[in-house]
């Protein structure tokens, strides 16, 4: 219960941050990605602000085996750069550039009642299901 409540709080603050920052607005995101047009550098400040806080948090996290609520730290073990990472990220970026939505802002805009965001989220979930289906059939043939 405590665990889910903390997760809810993080999700809520994350969503409010996306709204304050302008990241939940695809037009603002595309203004950042459009260097050749009139460039809006605002979103670099979003990343900067988030990482400024994040660096301290993860420096503390790295030294601990249990979280402050007493749960095991689940930090990613892999630091390997592989084809999957690169190809997947390249594909994600292209999709991001088409509509101006990455996963978080898409979900927040859905919460704001935007029909197009609902279509985006449904398509994104369909994409994730396609990935899982391909992965499980790949695993079962191995």
């Amino acid at each position: 219960m405590k665990y889910s409540l903390a997760a809810f709080g993080s999700g809520l603050i994350f969503g409010l941050g996306l709204l304050v920052s302008g990241m939940a607005n695809p037009e603002k995101v595309l203004g950042f990605l459009d260097i050749a047009g009139l460039w809006d550098p605002s979103l670099a400040f979003v990343m900067g602000g988030a990482i400024l806080v994040g660096v301290f948090a993860f420096a503390i996290a790295r030294k601990r085996t249990l979280s402050f609520l007493g749960y095991h730290m689940k930090l990613p073990a892999s630091d390997r750069v592989d084809t999957r990472l690169v190809v997947g990220s390249l594909m994600f970026g292209a999709g991001w550039g088409i509509a101006g939505f990455c996963p978080g802002p898409g979900l927040v805009a859905l919460g704001a009642g935007e029909i197009k965001a609902a279509v985006f989220v449904a398509s994104m979930i369909a994409g994730m299901v396609i990935f899982e289906t391909v992965e499980s059939s790949r695993r079962s043939t191995q």
Binding site: L90, A94, G95, W96, A99, G106, A126, V129, I130
Partner: peptide, 8 residues
């Protein structure tokens, strides 16, 4: 875009 973001 949604499909590419989901799969990617």
């Amino acid at each position: 875009a949604g499909l590419m973001v989901g799969i990617g």
